[in-house]
Design a protein around this nucleic acid. Structure first.
Lengths: 260, 260
DNA sequence: ACTTTCAGTTCGTTC
DNA sequence: GAACGAAGTGAAAGT
């Protein structure tokens, strides 16, 4: 911890902010403030106690006492302005592209910290849509027995077909993979099938592959003679873990964490 | 500030967490930790220094030193588990619907704070899509002169039409408002127009109203004989401000902020 | 409680 | 740099 100031006065705080805001430090301010945003939209946040922090890549967050998401933010700040005022502390974070700014006016400061966090590790996450793709690629049987994948990301005038395949009766199969399917997904699959019907002869099957389904979407599918195959997300994740374990050791390194 | 512990030991910290996690306090822990998430997906975050906080509504956030968004989170936690271990502090946040959990294992604690933030004010924001709707409602001329609004949110088999209107030549006009238009917006507008063509006689015009437009989407529109009208977001916001100012004083109240 | 749609979406990838 | 789609999307409004 570089600095920890409890109930700093505005000039003291301004000095610290001017020194550290523009550098790669994490700065946190808890205090009573008002916040104004202007840019793509415009917002106003009246007086309240909040947690404000600037991260080491100059991201700015204003968090209230509730809610997962911040009240105001700025993903990347280009320029800062700090001013100690008679009865407050003014902070302005501006960026271009898009042009927007967040202005914070503190009326009371509870505490302020400056620190440098070391975090070299990356988040490894599985369960995205692309992981379903990989599962199908490795084991087409999870869709249907004796299914043969012909092409992935097959281009059509209506867009890219996730998986283009052939079933055991030599029918072409258009497969659309969606983690979160909705009505548009059905329409899209229908358009793909129509494109393939123009390009190829015979019966063209359309299958929506998803980890969840609702009755409504299922009925949309049935109205259009399209099919649904359920995939278990747990299986998808499990198949990844098997691969991951086999590669163990490759990315095994330890980062240094100096005790500050 | 209820509590502020610098470099607490694990048992000390566990005690505080057990006392305050389940209550309406904001709890923040800075420290070296690993994080695992399992639920809709599965993620793993190796050792790193992070800011963890639990908000007063039991939202949980794990922030790294970079990026606007948290590394891990939980919008609402149903149950907590805290355990002081020999060489660490274990924290588990679980929720149902969907079933998921975040597990944090601290190996080092830099500091821990407990506080109660008072923030009764709500974020007032303008520039949403609905604000464009209101602008049109107040002043249909911004779309086109002598345009008369017949119905808003008109239902059709293809969905709800934002604004259904009639132009000065007595042609029906289907208006779709989008803050962020894309290809699907065009298709949707086209479907609405087709529905109206079945229901009514004569020429049916389709207009996409948006604050921004790309050449590509514009050409999609033209291919389908659909039109585009640009709205200036600044004007939309300005018209709101005029209304807001006229209502000044109505929502003018001061919340109490006790100095703790 | 479930569905639908918007978001200052953000973020990544690809062209 | 624009465009397209996914997200552990989240959040709000309507049913």
């Amino acid at each position: 911890m570089e600095k920890l100031l409890e109930n700093p006065d505005f000039e003291e705080a301004a000095e610290v902010l001017k020194e550290y805001l523009r550098r790669e430090y994490t700065v946190q301010i808890n205090g009573l403030c008002t916040v104004n945003y202007q840019g793509r939209a415009k917002s106003k946040l009246d007086r309240g106690e909040r947690i404000v922090f600037k991260k080491q890549d100059s991201a700015l967050l204003v968090h209230g006492p509730e809610n997962y998401q911040p009240k105001n933010w700025q993903p990347e700040v280009d320029s800062w302005r700090v001013e100690a005022e008679e009865e407050g502390l003014f902070l302005r974070a501006e960026r271009t592209n898009p042009d927007e700014s967040v202005e914070i006016r503190f009326e009371d400061l509870e505490f302020l910290t400056v620190s440098q966090l070391v975090d070299k590790s990356e988040l490894k996450i599985r369960g995205h849509e692309v992981d379903i793709h990989e599962s199908i690629e490795e084991e087409p049987d999870i869709i249907e027995e004796e299914l043969k994948v012909i092409e992935r990301e097959k281009e059509t005038p209506a867009g890219f077909i996730d998986v283009f395949a052939m079933d055991k009766d030599d029918n072409y199969v258009v497969i659309e993979v969606k983690r979160n399917p909705d009505y548009n997904t059905v329409l899209q699959l229908q358009r793909y099938v129509e494109e393939i019907e123009e390009e190829f002869q015979g019966v063209i099957r359309g299958i929506l592959v998803a980890p969840k389904m609702t009755d409504k979407i299922l009925s949309y599918l049935e109205e259009r003679d399209l099919e649904f195959v359920d995939v278990d997300m747990e299986d998808v994740i499990a198949s990844y873990e098997a691969v991951d374990n086999s590669q163990k050791g490759l990315s095994d390194f330890s980062a240094d964490y100096s005790t500050k």
